[in-house]
Design a protein around this nucleic acid. Structure first.
Lengths: 203, 203, 203, 203
DNA sequence: TATGAATGAGTATTCATTCAT
DNA sequence: TATGAATGAATACTCATTCAT
């Protein structure tokens, strides 16, 4: 078994990354429900049993994929809004960064989303009910500030956050359905669309 | 095997409906990829092989679920907009009916959506790439008319349709994550949100 | 259950013949091991369960096919040699009639042979070990007479019968491998071949 | 899954041989169409799924049985005729070796023949229509030479080859019907029988 | 650190048979 | 006489996991 000390060995880190990438590729190529360990390990040019060496289980690997991918997305948007105070500008930065990240990391995003919607834990719980951290916290805080300051129209915060997320996630839907989709047209219109919906102007 | 074409017997119709309902319940309870024929047949209190008697395959059953559920949704919105000409009024009727239908048929909708996003045909094609009919045709036609008449803001039709659909589908996301979710708050805000986003007013 | 009195009703006889023919066609089209009751009944345009009405079991139907087909072959050769006394002439008549019958009834023969070589009874016994009557009795008696009279070379009777049968069955092999095979060339040479092998001349 | 190409491990080779032998035994005991993976695996005292580990499919295993068995038969006859030039002597060596091999390897031969006549590929094609190599090539070449040199009677080559094969295959029929059959009497007479049929003398 | 070997539980599907009508 | 309905047993196959090395 792998010793889970303070730090992972260099080779272990490399192998884990390699397997996560192989899992992304596999899920995109054959879909979640045919992404067996054999397929994933084969793509990583590693023995199937070696996966067990680095991940406690197949589920552990898939969860790591999800976590890794969404952590990167979270970091992108966090970096984008860093240092910006004004809600409208923050939302603009957030939305731009969000769609840009989806555009740039479409393979990883598509795979992670497919895993999230398809996977269930042993007791049947879907993954989006398992998430410990709230991915929408940042978006929520931006909207809260904007509504409080009166630059966005008055709305229940949950509703506003959910709808804004749905709008931005249109980018994900597009790359899922067509991995080569051109997002530039969407990117040109999604922010104005969202700003109008929130009762703001982006000028 | 059941002969197609002529007409289905009373009992066959009943059994097929029963199995479709059992499939919906099963998918909601254990998720798509654990919804085995054994689970479905068990919930229908029927032998596993009886499923094969009424449906050529498991895929046939699941596709029937999807078709049945979305046909009902399509009929709801079609009925709602029937006789209304003006784009703004038509969109209002459409959106209201859409969310109301999701609210009322949440079990069926949640299951059908999970099937659509999770299922792959034998050659690996996801279901949303297989659909022959365009579910968004009605919404698209409404938006086209509104944009043409200048009551909605100028936007590429594909983008407008996709974003509008994403907004409305927020209702589905909510019932998927929590089958007992209260949609009333969302219902009160989603139409104004969408109208603002499209540059229209609903007064 | 069908009453097994002294005689079968007209309709029962017709149905049984119909099913036997359907079984022949089915075995030829899809092979023994895919010749399910559903396939056979379908080709006979009869409900699957109706087969059970006329035959105790699927095995009963297949056995009837075998018996019917080989009875006809036996009758052909018996008729052919009838009234002929001289062994060489009898063998000539037998062999000619045998190959001619195979040629004429190739569909039925091919199916019956496939059943015989493929089918096993419930306890695993192959069909050729089940046969109660000896299909080779006539051929054996002809050869015995010929050897006794010194017109055929001296040979153990079993060996002679078996080899003669093998030679004649080449016709069956040909129609099995290719249902449209032209047997005329074989027919022209098989009798001289067999006669030479037995040390006789056919002039 | 087992990697092909490079080279098989010692244990893999052993397991495959073991499974092929188990398949032979199983087919002989219960017949082709009851020779399920469970039966075969049970006789090999191995888990059913282990069969899948060494053979891509049941069909792959059975085809390997056929190929192995007929390759050995082909090698026997090839070795027997090696270095012999004269057609009569070559045919004598061929026929003797053929029947001797059937006698010695009767279990394997019986099983392989039953597989060949019973098995169908997924699209329904019988095995003897699939064979790429021609098992009768050597026999054919011997007969062609003999006919050309005038030591065998003039006959169409296809007919001569087919009939000679049928004669020799009488040995297979005997061991199939009775695995303990004594072939010595047949062996004493089959070659003279065949030589007479071909118009040759074996002195 | 890595893997080949092996397995048990689970998958959809096929099919001859039974039975009430 | 005939059948639609239903089933249980069996089928090949898949796959995550375990383990000795």
């Amino acid at each position: 078994m792998v010793v889970r000390g303070s730090s992972r060995s260099f080779i272990e880190t490399a192998r884990r990354r390699q397997l996560i990438e192989a899992a992304v590729v596999t899920v995109n190529e054959v879909g979640y429900h045919r992404a067996s360990l054999a397929e994933i390990a084969g793509r990583a040019r590693i023995a199937k049993s070696a996966v067990a060496y680095y991940f406690a289980s197949k589920e552990g690997l898939l969860l790591d994929v999800v976590q890794t991918v969404f952590a990167a997305l979270g970091e992108s948007v966090l970096t984008a809004v860093d240092g910006i105070d004004e809600p409208v500008a923050r939302l603009l930065a957030y939305a731009d960064a969000y769609v840009a990240h989806v555009d740039a990391e479409r393979q990883a995003i598509a795979a992670a989303v497919e895993i999230v919607v398809s996977h269930r834990t042993a007791d049947g719980t879907p993954l989006y009910l398992v998430e410990d951290e709230d991915d929408t916290a940042l978006l929520r805080s931006i909207l809260r500030a904007g509504i409080d300051q009166g630059v966005f129209v008055e709305m229940p915060l949950d509703v506003a956050t959910g709808l804004a997320e749905s709008v931005l996630d249109r980018a994900i839907t597009l790359v899922q359905r067509n991995s080569g989709a051109d997002l530039s047209v969407l990117r040109a219109h999604v922010v104005p669309f969202l700003f109008r919906a929130l009762g703001a102007t982006d000028d």
